[in-house]
Structures are given as C-alpha cells and as structure tokens.
Nucleic acid binder design. Structure first.
Lengths: 263, 263
DNA sequence: ATGTCTTTGTGAACGCGTGCACAAAGACGG
DNA sequence: CCGTCTTTGTGCACGCGTTCACAAAGACAT
C-alpha cells in the first residue's frame, strides 16, 4: 500500500533540526553577499536582518553547527561561508538532471542559482522526440528513453521533475529505480516514493492560493459586508451534513458565513 | 530601520491555523481530481492518502472549517470543494500581475494552474523596452513605466516578482506603493515590506540545497569515510574562534568531520 | 593586569502543530 | 425500532521550534 509519505523525519537523528537546515541556505546567501563586499565580520544582529530572521534564532541555528563566532566581535564571514557550505554539502559537486523541458524546465535550466552553488545540470530530459538534440541553456535535450543510462553514467542522485502532473509519478519511479534518492518536484501531484528517498515539492499555484486566503481575510475585515463569493451556491450538501458547528449550542466562531451569500 | 520581516503572524487572529491553510490547497487539488471522476464521497482516510497526509491531521484541519462530513460515510466531495474554495477565497476573481518576463516569468504566464483556480493574469510587465508588445502566453508584455497604472486599472492586489534579485526590492516597493498587498517572490532576496503586506517566497536553489544536505547525510552514513569536501580549506578562522564545540570536554556530536577530507 | 563594554551561546518557558485514541454520531440491516 | 458497524470530530499528550533573557567570553582601552 503506497503511503505517499514525503519522508519528513530525516534529520532529527543527527543533530541539526530540520527548521535550521531550511534556513542555512538563507544565511549562506546573505553571507555570500557580504563576502563579495569584502566585509570581514558580522554580528548576529546584522546577519539576521540581512537574512530576514530573528537574531536569537540565528544564533541558536549556528550553535547547532558548533561555536564559530567570537564574543564581542561577531562571526568571521569567510569562515562561516565555508562551514555552512560544508554542512550543506555544497563543497562537492552535485550532478542534477531536469526532466520535462517545457517552459518551466527551460527556466530551471537557465537559472543561474544552481550552477553557482555546486549544482551542475548534467542533463535535460524530455519525452518529446522533436526536442531531442535541441540545445536549451547550452545543453542538448535528451530523450526519456535514455533516462536510466544518463543517471547511471553521470552518477546523478538528485532529480528535478518539471513534467505535467500526469507524467510525474512515472518519471519519479524511473528516476528512483535508476538510483536517484532526492527529488525536487514541480508537478502538482503527490509523489509516492520508497523510504530513503527525499522529496521536496514546489507548487506555484499553492503559494498563490495561500496568498489569496490572507488577501481575502484582509479585505473581509476592513470592509465587512463585502466578502466575495459570486459563483453558484454549489451542490446541495448531503442532508445530514447541513448542521454546522455547534448550531444552537456555541455562538460560532464569527457568525458563520451562510452557505449562500448575497452577490 | 527596515526590519525585513515576512509578516508571519497573520492567521492566528481568526480561527484557522497557518499550517492548516497551507494544506487546504492540497486537499482541494485531491478533491478536484475526485470530482472529475464523479466520486460522490470520500473518507478521511482515502482523501488523506490522496493528499499525502495523516488522516487525523486532515480531520482536524477540516474541523476548523466546520462540521462538514457525515459519520460512517465520509465527506461529500462537491460540497467540500466548494467550502474549501470559499475559505481560500477562490470563488472570486484574483487579477495577478507578473513582473519580470524572463524564462521564469514566461513559464509562470503559461502555467495552467493559475487560471484554473480563480487567478487571472491581468498583465505581464518587464523592464526591457524590446519586450514591450511582444505577446507571451497570449498576453502582450507591458513596460515597467506603466506598472502603477496597470495595478490601479485592474484592481490588482496580488503581484508576482520574477525579476533578477537586484531589481526585486525596487519592483516590490513600487507594487506596494501602487496598492498590491500580497507578493509572491521568486527572486533570491529578502524583501522588506510594510506591515499588512504578505510576502511568500519560492527559492529554487534553496530547495536544492536542502536536498543536498540530506543527500550528503545519507551518503556519509552509509559509507563512512567518504564524505566530500574537496575545496581548499577556506580562509583561516579567526584565531580565537578555532576552538570548536566542547573541545576536550564533550565527546563531540559525531566525531566532528575533519575540515580536510581524503579524496 | 584590570575593568568595561559588546556580543555570543544557551537554559528555560511558551506556544504551535502533530498524532493517538476514543467517544459520539449516524448509516444500514434486520 | 434496535443493534451493529463505520467513520467523524476532538480531548489530550508530546515534541519541535521560537523567543526571551542572561551569564560567560573575549576584545579593547587604560
């Protein structure tokens, strides 16, 4: 029974909390910028501001890595860049394949942020035969048929899926079977993978939907009486489920918006 | 002093926890798929599996919305689709502008996931004059000069930034000044915005770096003695900071990997 | 060497999110 | 109408992550 889990509890076993790991790239980016400006040291306060986090949180994060940093002075920028890079595994070369060279795949292939951080686009793969050989971002697109061979020959362990949703799981299975153990998924689907394989997903429309939620809440609070909702009043709820939360008993969270709203 | 905060504590004020809001789009997607297959009802167990989450978590999430669902049967798919859509504010139309029509911007403009969920690309904006008028995804690109006018005329409250990092803050400031209150940022920078403006960021390279971390850990644990790290042994740490965590006192977390490793 | 002043590193408290486990609700069959 | 069986809704406990607040550490001046 495929559980479809996303393999969350992976880090706790050895020191560094997941939340901290997720912030390390943020610090690294800020530090790199400082390094380019030849700034020798930063205080936790300054660096925290640059990374957009709380300074206490930053210090605690760094404390998991060890005691780099000098009291009364701050952190040595170059040294910290190295330590974080090493911790993240960016001191080694990571060959990456991108599968699905549509608009998004092409954008990813051209994205400079990859190459600059130890990631190397080893191959671009697409199922469309007419794409084969066509160079994107200077790299010739290869056909899906050769996926396994490409993975193996280049020792790829990280794969990026930028295919349509329908093809994602199939591509994922092939990547995993070929030896990929980390997947960055841009397709709007839940991928199910065996244990030991990490999946991170980026869903563009989900982010927008979350924004819409907050946006609606803002609008609804400032102008009460103007909520939105102008589509047809959906399918009739199953008779039994009409009873909403604590009807008649509790006051209701905020005067429950009726199912059908005035236009 | 620009704090650069990302405006986190926004939802708690009214019921639904942020973590739940972030999962609603996931449920919605799964439900939509079921709806298209004309499935009338689902149990929390089934839906949870489809969405890739724990069933208890799903039930608790839904309990924040109210008591939709029938014990012994499950949830009415159509009804739930409507309730979640309404809660997320997707029953109304959200005009969106995309600023920065490079590879990524074009990919976003073409991305079907937007239009299908109540989001409408109202305009594409780019600073390059040679792009002006050129249609991308059927929409003519407009010049940055007209940004304020476009925002105002279309009543845009959500903006997507897909510019290079250097231009992001400036674009952000203009968007906010023109009335945008929600921003989806793809540029690798920390945006600072006034209170009341929501920012969500998507950073492609950060996701890869997190994967690399886990990947390195996997590799390091299975084959101890083969870690990686082959670059020069960084800048010399400031003399005082050389002392690492509990040297001589504590045993060390896991035998601190030496700075220079054998190839 | 001693004192002062800055900044780190962290102990402790708190709050949120997660997951278990179970009682209550209701469908369904007899 | 009653009993059984399924599935929801949620009280509770636990663990992670965040934040505060402060003692210890060291730079730097005298």
């Amino acid at each position: 029974m495929a559980t479809g889990r996303t393999h969350r509890p992976a880090t706790r076993s050895r020191g560094i909390p997941e939340a901290t790991v997720a912030r390390l790239p943020l610090y690294l980016r800020a530090l790199t910028a400082l390094s380019e400006r030849s700034v020798p040291t930063v205080s936790s306060e300054e660096l925290a501001a640059a990374a957009g986090v709380n300074s206490a949180k930053l210090r605690k994060d760094f404390s998991y890595l060890g005691s780099y940093g000098t009291r009364g002075v701050g952190y040595d920028v170059e040294y910290l860049v190295y330590q974080i890079s090493r911790e993240l595994g960016l001191t080694q070369d990571w060959p990456v394949v991108i599968v699905g060279i549509g608009n998004l795949g092409a954008a990813l292939a051209n994205y400079g942020g990859f190459a600059s951080r130890g990631f190397r686009v080893a191959a671009l793969i697409d199922a469309d035969p007419s794409m084969a050989g066509k160079p994107v971002a200077g790299i010739p697109v290869q056909h899906t048929d050769d996926l396994e061979m490409i993975i193996e020959e280049n020792g790829v362990s990280i794969g990026v899926i930028a295919t349509p949703a329908g093809a994602a799981q199939q591509v994922c299975d092939r990547l995993v079977a070929a030896g990929v153990t980390s997947i960055l998924n841009f397709a709007p689907t839940v991928l199910s993978v065996p244990d030991g394989v990490d999946v991170r997903k980026v869903d563009l429309s989900i982010e927008l939907q979350i924004l819409a939620f907050h946006e609606q809440r803002k609008a609804g609070e400032e102008t009460p009486g103007e909520g939105g909702a102008d589509t047809t009043p959906p399918a009739a709820p199953p008779a039994a489920a009409v009873r909403r939360r604590g009807e008649g008993t509790e006051p209701g969270p905020d005067g429950d918006v009726p199912a059908v709203m005035p236009a």
